[in-house]
């Protein structure tokens, strides 16, 4: 079995919205439509902390479709336009089938994860962005994160989890049913929280807090070693 999902490190997440923007770019989202949102856990407004000086705190959660193992939405779609894929666990959305009844939006406990195109999709700039293959958006249908299913088909990870795209290096993607995957290892090491776990949907997006627990410094160390070997005047040449 394959059970795709994400691990997001809230220690490293600084709520910068780069992942939200990567999703918007990759999926060529219409105006005012965001599949991946950044939530501030703190004060009332974005980027504000909670508490009173000196006891302040702030944390960020990024939120998209949770690709639940027991989704509330797939049960209720009368035409099966949203369904959980057998082969990888992605909760998919078929715009052609969607009749726009919005039952899935009422059934999903994760407020705001599902977006309805309330009008003909509008675009500020008239070009189709992304690496290619993102489905065309349709008026009066529901849409949401699909783990970039069109990229998965090419063996690529979702846009928001692309190598080095998160400035904090806070996002990991993989197969929870594979114990050797990065996401499984992270869960084993840090535990992990799920959102709204009492809703019994068994989401596959886990939030960890890796603060201070040590990190894989092998990349940083490897580079340091390489440089020590070539220290001095030799140029280190990059490969394209």
């Amino acid at each position: 079995m394959t059970r795709l999902g994400m691990v997001i490190d809230t220690f490293r997440c600084i709520g910068c919205h780069t992942c939200a923007m990567a999703c918007k770019l990759e999926n060529n989202l219409p105006n005012n439509n965001w599949w991946n949102r950044v939530l501030t856990v703190g004060g009332e407004d974005m980027d504000t902390p909670g508490g009173i000086y000196p006891n302040l705190s702030k944390k960020y959660f990024t939120l998209g479709c949770q690709h639940c193992t027991n989704p509330a939405c797939t049960r209720v779609c009368p035409v099966g336009a949203t369904y959980k894929r057998e082969e990888d666990g992605v909760v998919f959305q078929d715009y052609d089938k969607c009749i726009g009844c919005r039952m899935c939006m009422a059934a999903c406990p994760y407020t705001g994860v599902r977006n309805f195109n309330w009008e003909e999709p509008q675009y500020y700039v008239g070009i189709q962005t992304g690496s290619g293959g993102a489905p065309t958006h349709k008026k009066h249908t529901v849409e949401k994160c699909t783990l970039c299913a069109h990229r998965l088909a090419r063996g690529e990870e979702p846009a928001c989890c692309q190598d080095s795209i998160c400035p904090g290096r806070a996002r990991y993607f993989g197969d929870f049913d594979d114990p050797s995957s990065k996401v499984s290892q992270l869960l084993a090491r840090y535990g992990g929280e799920q959102l709204l776990s009492d809703m019994q949907t068994e989401p596959n997006i886990y939030y960890i807090d890796s603060r201070g627990a040590g990190k894989d410094l092998s990349i940083a160390n490897a580079y340091k070693e390489a440089l020590n070997k070539t220290a001095g005047s030799e140029a280190v040449v990059a490969s394209h």
């Binding site: 949102r37 939530l39 501030t40 974005m46 994760y110 407020t111 705001g112 709204l196």
Partner: peptide, 10 residues
């Protein structure tokens, strides 16, 4: 009463 208060990005 939304489950997650910050319901809209824009």
């Amino acid at each position: 009463i939304p489950n997650i208060d910050y319901w809209s990005t824009t």
